[in-house]
Design a protein around this nucleic acid. Structure first.
Lengths: 222, 222
DNA sequence: GCGATTAGTGTATAAAATACACTAATTTTA
DNA sequence: TAAAATTAGTGTATTTTATACACTAATCGC
């Protein structure tokens, strides 16, 4: 079955589930579609894969063009290609997910002006295409990776406290964790180190700041 | 960047890493290419995704057409799409991996006659395209899943002994495991049950035969 | 200086994983 | 037909890992 049996309407795209922690909730970024199909509805950012463009490069470019973010953690998730997932043409989409530190949520005005916004995962609007399924899979992957990798560290800014790191875990797992056990676990990984500085905010004891020893690196643990 | 910027040479394919246990080794199935590029070289089986064909359906069809096998465990692995991975056209390939029970290795004469054969993973010939990378990733995924799922059960025939199941684990992990601990682990999963029959072979005590309670089902454990 | 608030620390218990050696049943051979 | 050879089958003790749990420390605002 050679490729020439295709008419011109085959397309390959990437879709990106961009997670962050916002207002103590797991949130993701959506864009409002400006074209058919699903015009005016919310969808995952993404774009068509260019003729000489790698898949991850396409996701990186879409991320930059539509949100102004770059240098964030980005990993391939799954490929969706059911015929009929786009009513107008056959689209095969390689889904990625990205994790954005809380200190980099500022959205640059996008190249193609369009509505862009952060939504709490628990309060998403209806999504175009099969994007709801993609989000569900990405969420599942994230929760699962939390328990056997250092992926959550990618949500942290350059400097962070152990309490902040713990809060990120609690938000993603949607359950409280024991403070002493968490700190034991986090420090035993040998992936973070104290900066020597402290963070003071509020009327309480200041907290030691930590940084990643290997920014951008995600270790498989256990 | 709309899809019409593509010329006709975009293609989407699936490639399948078909694992089995053969001669007490982890082995996989390769086909000899009959067309350019890489004509005459060994490659993973696979095929072009049809205009109205789902991705998994494409992999299933390729598996059937090129090897005569059907009904085996099949899971999406990763999508490879570097420009230049095929020298003649832009090809984006969704890789799958399949696990074949040892009692189903008979290869039907393929629809399009071509050389097909099983190769020990440790003694693969040079492979076409980036298939070596695909195999490496599939192998990594398999080893990794072994420790947190019941995936190895998919290598077993309809009836099997605990020693045979243990051997499969030892072959994939490339290390011996303790017999008593392994049996404790395997039985505690509650995924297998005795058939009541015994297997006699050789001059030794016969072994209890077991079967899967839920054939085709892979449980995440731990 | 006292109240409020969050940061920071250790130990005891429970659960899980690991290490380890003999008896049982069968076939072959002497 | 008894002994040798071979693989099947079984339990317990030890180590490691995970969990549960409560108080002191430092700062800010009043």
């Amino acid at each position: 079955m050679p490729s020439c049996s295709w008419d011109r309407s085959l397309a390959v795209t990437t879709d990106i589930v961009i997670f962050t922690i916002r207002d103590r909730r797991l949130a993701l970024l959506l864009v409002k579609r400006t074209e058919a199909p699903f015009q005016g509805e919310w969808a995952l950012p993404g774009g068509f894969v260019g003729p000489d463009e790698g898949l991850k490069a396409c996701a990186t470019r879409a991320l930059d063009e539509q949100t102004g973010m770059s240098g964030v953690y980005l990993e391939q998730l799954y490929t969706f290609g059911d015929p009929g997932r786009d009513p107008l043409q056959r689209v095969i989409s390689i889904a990625y997910y990205a994790l954005v530190p809380s200190d980099r949520l500022a959205l640059r005005a996008p190249a193609e002006p369009q509505a862009v916004g952060w939504f709490a995962l628990e309060q998403l609007p209806p999504l175009a295409f099969d994007h709801c399924e993609i989000v569900a899979l990405a969420h599942h992957r994230l929760v699962s990776k939390l328990t056997y990798s250092t992926i959550a560290f990618q949500f942290m800014g350059e400097k962070f406290t152990l309490s902040e790191l713990q809060a990120v875990h609690e938000i993603i797992l949607a359950q409280r964790v024991d403070k002493r056990n968490f700190r034991k676990w986090a420090l035993a990984l040998e992936q973070i180190e104290p900066t020597g500085e402290e963070r003071r905010d509020g009327k309480h004891r200041p907290a030691q700041l930590y940084r990643l020893k290997f920014p951008g690196r995600v270790e498989i643990i256990r």
